[in-house]
């Protein structure tokens, strides 16, 4: 029986269609639920941003096009000023926190990679805080750093430093310090990723560098760092998104002295959108602000990903080099051992 070319093509086409059908079936449960429960409410909110919308007084709702967005970008509107002000706070915090969120876990992972006894216990202890919810975090740190002498830290050092109070840009630094501390404490996720990445750095590369006369520092710079670049990239992405959306930490770590409740954009949005019925009339404007915020986050994170993908660092220490070096090293070692035994 002859299998014609046409038959074969038809068969391939059928197989392909079957595969696509199967794929469709497999991804539909997830996507149906996703669309129903996540996308549709979001789209509704998206529509609200083009309206003067009050959920409690539907007869007052009307379509006003881009007015809300114009108001968000209006520099003379005091509320919008607050919105954009929160952006600068958040970016400043990001700039400080993100490096810390990578360097501290990197250092810890580096130490861990030296395999001290009991390293599994250390690993567990360092990782543990990141499964604790933000609210509990806030309760713990809030009470530890309470302003007067009844906070743990103040009681220990005999001071009365008001950690968590402060007007914006005055004593606020202390409060941001505490928030940073709380954030670093929960860096467990990044820590573990980096620890594993460090473990996977090929030993051969390290030895090759060592043979070239490299000390610990050059080894770190030219071998370790490039090898763990994918892991660092992931950690960076995660930390960036987390910081841009920063809400829980500053919200809980707040004391009465502090009026700068609206310090990150997410807090700004949450405070008014979920703040109760008094703000209901401005739902449209708030949705517009949230959309603008989301757009900016998307832009920032796309920039970040492009930046990490684009760079291809060339170093001397690639796999091939190590193999070549390693070979010569083995030969040299054998000669040495032979000489010893002789």
């Amino acid at each position: 029986m002859q299998v014609t070319a046409i038959d074969k093509k038809a068969q391939q086409k059928r197989a392909k269609r079957k595969e696509q059908l199967l794929a469709f079936v497999l991804i539909s449960p997830y996507f149906i639920i996703f669309v129903l429960f996540t996308v549709i409410p979001f789209v509704m909110g998206f529509v609200f941003s083009f309206m003067q919308y009050n959920p409690y007084m539907p007869e007052q709702n009307e379509f006003i096009g881009l007015d809300n967005f114009i108001e968000v970008f209006d520099p003379s509107d005091p509320i919008s000023q607050r919105f954009w002000g929160s952006f600068s706070t958040m970016l400043a915090f990001c700039a400080v926190n993100t490096p810390l969120a990578i360097l501290v876990p990197l250092g810890l992972a580096y130490l861990l990679n030296m395999h001290p006894p009991g390293f599994k216990i250390f690993r567990a202890i360092i990782y543990l805080p990141c499964v604790i919810s933000v609210t509990i975090n806030g309760i713990i740190f809030g009470n530890m750093f309470a302003g007067s002498s009844s906070g743990l830290i103040n009681a220990w050092f005999g001071t009365e430093i008001k950690w968590l109070s402060g007007l914006p840009w005055e004593n606020d630094f202390l409060r941001w310090f505490v928030i940073l501390l709380a954030n670093v404490w929960t860096c467990g996720g990044n820590f573990v990723i980096l620890a594993a990445a460090l473990r996977d750095v090929p030993k051969s590369l390290n030895e090759a560098c060592e043979m070239d006369g490299g000390n610990r520092w050059t080894r770190f710079l030219y071998v370790t760092l490039p090898s763990i670049k994918p892991a660092v990239s992931i950690c960076l992405f995660n930390s960036l998104i987390a910081n841009l959306n920063l809400y829980g930490g500053p919200y809980v770590l707040n004391e009465i002295d502090n009026e700068s409740l609206l310090v990150t954009p997410m807090m700004f949005i949450q405070n008014f959108l979920m703040g109760g019925v008094a703000y209901a009339r401005q739902t449209g404007y708030l949705c517009a602000a949230a959309i603008v915020f989301g757009a900016i986050v998307i832009i920032l994170s796309s920039i970040e990903r492009k930046a990490m993908d684009g760079r291809k660092k060339r170093t001397k220490y690639t796999e091939e080099y190590a193999v070549a070096r390693g070979n010569s090293y083995m030969i040299a070692k054998e000669e040495k051992d032979d000489a010893k035994e002789a």
Partner: peptide, 13 residues
């Protein structure tokens, strides 16, 4: 979608 602020969808949800 990870960057989308989900808070908009709470009340409509």
């Amino acid at each position: 979608w990870m960057a989308v602020p989900g808070v908009i969808g709470t009340a409509p949800g």
